[in-house]
Design a protein around this nucleic acid. Structure first.
Lengths: 309, 309
DNA sequence: ATTAATCATGACTGTGGAGTCAGGTATCCT
DNA sequence: AGGATACCTGACTCCACAGTCATGATTAAT
């Protein structure tokens, strides 16, 4: 019976919350940065929960802490429960729900942010939180409910299900005309020999896109030594826009570039590298939070529409 | 964000539990019988929760209390959450889960109890709790998770889904041979004229079975005045077994009756009244608790097998 | 009108647990 | 080796909340 839960002490919402915070942050220290008192408290709360449940919820792994199998399950359970309570509270108080949407930094900036008002509208005025993550960890975040929705490359999603296509991405070579001879054409721009002489900006985030560009250059025979190596594609675009250098930008990144000032042409070596960007969700999570598959497909369409505007 | 839940006080597991107890019992008084102190506490806990959520969870209905729409939802939510926590605890502690199985009193006695060991075995050694309910309220109990499984007449289940057939029930006229002339046959027993002269025992629980029997007698032209009117069919069977009177028993109730002492024959007026007994469950609830549809169908088969033994 | 339920409220006490501080230990980095 | 980092532990304080009792308000049953 449920009353067994209360027959012995050691269980409280605060403890569950403390444990969940540690689970989300990945370590106690990150869960309470700069607050050593709270750290010791979370440590104790976890120990008390472990006593209550009679199981190790955590495993020492080096000098840091990670979750055991049981801990993973409990963390998932607690997040769902607290979120259900919070949704109930918000609904009763007449407040909008809030959804967390994750994507890479450039996708957020170029695609998601412009679409946020329309998304919120379709979700009944929901509050939206954007979170920047790497593709890899986004899948995990969706799986265990830290992120409600993700915009992510299709190949980074374990299964093809629970996704709706948003757009296909291609790569474009963008060269400020100031760096070219007067009257240069797209044909001129397609020459690797030219690329070798140009100053380039490139990402250096170690992500798939970054790697692909570098490999493509290599196999085109270019000794690719970008003058600027940036932490994100956003910075690459800025440099291109300034006319400081050339760059390879994904479809999303060329919107708003002035074709009079920048020559934009498909980047041939990555012509077949086009990847689909999809909206990804956790079906169980979405069902709990009141979104049907049809809502999600509509959301994907809304985001895709953003590109046409 | 989930942290909003903790930004203001007034939420605690104890309060949620107090509210849920009231919700299950139907009133504060029933939730804490004979404990006026606990009563006042639950009353206060509910008020504090209402303040926390900013909603009325209860409605005064006469001198007693009932749940509002929001209250119903919250109660359902809390029961699920506490049960999930309890399941987690049990699992981690290596203890078996516990399941609540509901049915009518006679079904429990005649069908369910003999099958309990096999059911427990199939559920991995689960602890089983039987609960006697009327058909009508069983449906509700399954719907909101107070009862995990129910054995119930098919026509008492709102939708045909979420059920598996256990058996078909028919009605049998059972007459102690001591009340008949020596050498009486089944044919003799089928005469309404005889019925009129026999002492009968009948249920008087106002249930569908009871009503059907009385109506059938009436339309057979019998002025049906049972000598014994019993609260349950169990008592009817006892009286028949004692040889004190005749009775109409469902298929389940004739097992173990000594045919040498009791003449058992189909009760013709209710020949087409046969009703299916099904195992009924709440799919959402069962998914949460780790039972698949296939498990449940197997359970129904296990219970059905009980009849052959 | 009287009585009995049922729930609500106020005024407490006691306690479990959150919050805080001060070390202590193990591990990693250089 | 020395220092930084991350976690654990013990010893407290303080408070929110469970627990208890007495009483009042409303409604139902007789």
């Amino acid at each position: 019976m449920i009353n067994d839960l209360f027959s012995k002490g050691g269980l409280s919402l605060d403890r569950l919350r403390g444990f969940m915070q540690m689970a989300e942050a990945g370590s106690i220290a990150k869960a309470a940065p700069g607050k050593p008192n709270r750290q010791s408290q979370i440590s104790r709360q976890i120990r008390e929960l472990e006593q209550f449940f009679g199981t190790e919820l955590t495993r020492r792994k080096g000098k840091t802490l990670s979750l055991s199998i049981a801990g993973e399950r409990l963390a998932l359970l607690i997040r769902e429960q607290l979120q259900d309570l919070e949704d109930f509270r918000k609904e009763q108080a007449g407040l909008p729900k809030s959804f967390v949407i994750g994507a890479g930094a450039s996708v957020i900036e170029w695609l998601l942010v412009p679409a946020l008002p329309a998304i919120s509208r379709h979700l009944g005025g929901a509050t939206l939180l954007t979170e920047s993550h790497r593709s890899r960890s986004l899948g995990d975040a969706v799986r265990d409910g830290r992120v409600d929705l993700a915009i992510i490359r299709q190949d980074a999603v374990p299964t093809g299900a629970n996704t709706a296509l948003v757009m296909k991405m291609r790569f474009h070579l963008c060269i400020p005309r100031a760096l070219l001879k007067r009257g240069a054409t797209e044909r001129d721009a397609a020459s690797p020999a030219l690329w070798q002489t140009l100053a380039f900006a490139a990402g250096r985030d170690g992500g798939q896109t970054d790697t692909a560009v570098r490999e493509a250059m290599q196999s085109a025979g270019v000794d690719f030594r970008p003058r600027f190596e940036c932490g994100s594609m956003l910075q690459v675009r800025q440099l291109v826009e300034l006319g400081a250098c050339a760059g390879i930008l994904p479809t999303l990144g060329i919107r708003g570039l002035d074709e009079k000032k920048v020559l934009i042409t498909p980047f041939a070596p990555l012509r077949d590298f086009g990847r689909a960007l999809v909206l990804h969700w956790n079906p169980r999570q979405m069902r709990r939070r009141g979104l049907e598959t049809s809502d999600l497909k509509k959301l994907a369409a809304i985001i895709a529409d953003q590109l046409k505007a």
